[in-house]
Amino acid sequence: MMPVPMVGRGDALEELRNAWEQAQLLGRCVPAVITGLPGTGKSRLTAAAVQAMTPEVVLSGSARLHSPAPYDWLAAVLAGRGPRPELPVPPQALAWLAQDPDVPRERYTPDALLRLAVTTVRALAGGRPSVLMVEDLHALDPASLSLIAELAGAPLPAVLLVTSRPPDEAVNPRLTVRTLERLAGVPGAVRRHLAALSAGEVGQIMQHLYGSSTLAAAAWQHTGGNPYRLTELLAMAGTEQALAQLVHPPAGPAVPVPVPAARRPAALTAPEQAALTAREREVLGCLAEGMSNKHIATALGISVRTVTVHVSNLLRKTGASSRTEAALWAVQRPAG
């Protein structure tokens, strides 16, 4: 049986492998776009795909923490490469693309910068089998979206691996839709939307872990089929007997089933006693979806520092000793 994280994602993983083979065969950049809500496994799928592809070069970037700036994706790629290599791009233009401070901007037109950005990416890849990883397309700036669209189909043996939330959650919804349409229009492009797991897929996971799918329907209803919530629920339970108590609380007094010490959280405050503010509940929901402080800040339009304060308050109010325990506290409350 496939590893648990890939249950329900096997077809998508195979399609990504095929895109890689096609990119190497044809020598051109093949887009592969994975969309889905937080917690649906986009990162796990792309990580498994990159491992299966075994590229010589991986260029990975994402949006900035707060207000998007021109060429955020490329700036992140360059920042992650260590010492800046020699590239066939004017040093001043490269410094601008890298978002170095105090670089004059009026010297280059938008079209010229776009051509230089494409040249930079191609030079970094150097004609080698590559993966161009674009995380959170929905949060990128217009210049980065234009660059991503230009790279699709370029003469480069690479897969342009893109993750994104649905366009209606994007910083620039119209531009995001146009970019996704352009990517999808490239011959051989992969377009996958990850939804919640079905009850049957949750049953596969139960069978894999416990040799029984008796609790599949209850676990599916408890988590809404969200892969992240399901993973946290199973990690907290550890055993099938403990899971049964979590998804089917006893109606009357009962002797609790011991949870392995390594998985046992500290005594958590009951939901009705936590007295969370509306914003804290929003942050808690993001934690339960597996989001980092950076992603929570972007999603809620607040600073990372403010997110940190809210997380600290959540830990105090719920009695949790870590972000994971706070997320587990949220998971214990049935979805909906």
Rank of each mutant, 00 (worst) to 15 (best):
residue 3 P to W: 07
residue 5 P to G: 11
residue 18 N to Y: 13
residue 18 N to A: 15
residue 27 G to F: 04
residue 30 V to N: 03
residue 32 A to C: 06
residue 33 V to Y: 04
residue 35 T to A: 10
residue 37 L to A: 13
residue 41 G to K: 07
residue 42 K to R: 12
residue 47 A to K: 12
residue 53 M to C: 03
residue 54 T to S: 11
residue 55 P to E: 01
residue 55 P to R: 01
residue 59 L to G: 00
residue 64 R to K: 09
residue 66 H to I: 13
residue 66 H to E: 14
residue 71 Y to D: 00
residue 73 W to H: 02
residue 76 A to I: 02
residue 77 V to M: 02
residue 77 V to Y: 02
residue 82 G to A: 10
residue 84 R to Y: 06
residue 88 P to F: 03
residue 97 L to E: 00
residue 110 P to K: 12
residue 114 L to N: 01
residue 122 R to W: 02
residue 123 A to W: 02
residue 131 V to W: 02
residue 132 L to A: 08
residue 134 V to R: 03
residue 141 D to L: 08
residue 144 S to I: 06
residue 146 S to H: 05
residue 148 I to G: 01
residue 150 E to L: 05
residue 152 A to L: 04
residue 163 T to P: 03
residue 167 P to R: 13
residue 177 V to F: 05
residue 179 T to P: 00
residue 184 A to K: 13
residue 191 R to C: 06
residue 192 R to H: 14
residue 193 H to R: 15
residue 195 A to I: 14
residue 197 L to M: 11
residue 202 V to Q: 02
residue 204 Q to A: 14
residue 207 Q to R: 12
residue 213 S to A: 15
residue 218 A to I: 05
residue 219 A to V: 09
residue 221 Q to C: 08
residue 221 Q to Y: 07
residue 229 R to N: 01
residue 237 A to K: 13
residue 241 Q to T: 15
residue 246 L to M: 14
residue 247 V to S: 12
residue 250 P to V: 10
residue 255 V to D: 15
residue 270 A to H: 03
residue 276 L to V: 07
residue 276 L to N: 04
residue 278 A to Y: 04
residue 285 G to W: 07
residue 286 C to T: 08
residue 286 C to K: 07
residue 296 I to P: 04
residue 297 A to K: 01
residue 298 T to K: 04
residue 300 L to F: 11
residue 314 L to S: 01
residue 317 K to A: 03
residue 318 T to Q: 04
residue 319 G to R: 03
residue 325 E to M: 11
residue 326 A to F: 08
residue 326 A to E: 00
residue 332 Q to A: 11
